[in-house]
């Protein structure tokens, strides 16, 4: 089973990388870009086949290591 964990900066937390991306896109003429935020995607290969158990475990992984909840939020997507 695969899990995708999408980690994004929290609303209201300064995201200088996102700002730089939006600025660069504007500079390339993509004037419709009004904002950008940069996060990260972590792909996990998991043993086991119980999606409920997998989700619980990945939540624990997010809380313990993958996301810093002071500044980030996470979303989990399971497949397979």
């Amino acid at each position: 089973m695969k899990a995708h964990v999408l980690i994004m900066p929290r609303e209201g937390v300064l995201d200088p990388q996102g700002k730089a991306i939006a600025h660069a896109l504007n500079g390339l003429g993509f004037t419709q870009v009004e904002g950008a935020r940069q996060g990260k995607l972590i792909e996990l290969e998991l043993s086991g086949s119980d999606p409920e158990a997998a989700r619980r475990e990945v939540v624990e992984m997010c809380e313990k290591l993958l996301a810093n909840q002071v500044i980030e939020t996470y979303r989990i997507h399971l497949e397979g």
Partner: peptide, 8 residues
């Protein structure tokens, strides 16, 4: 938390 410097 310690974020990326505002100046990048």
């Amino acid at each position: 938390a310690l974020l990326r410097n505002a100046s990048m």
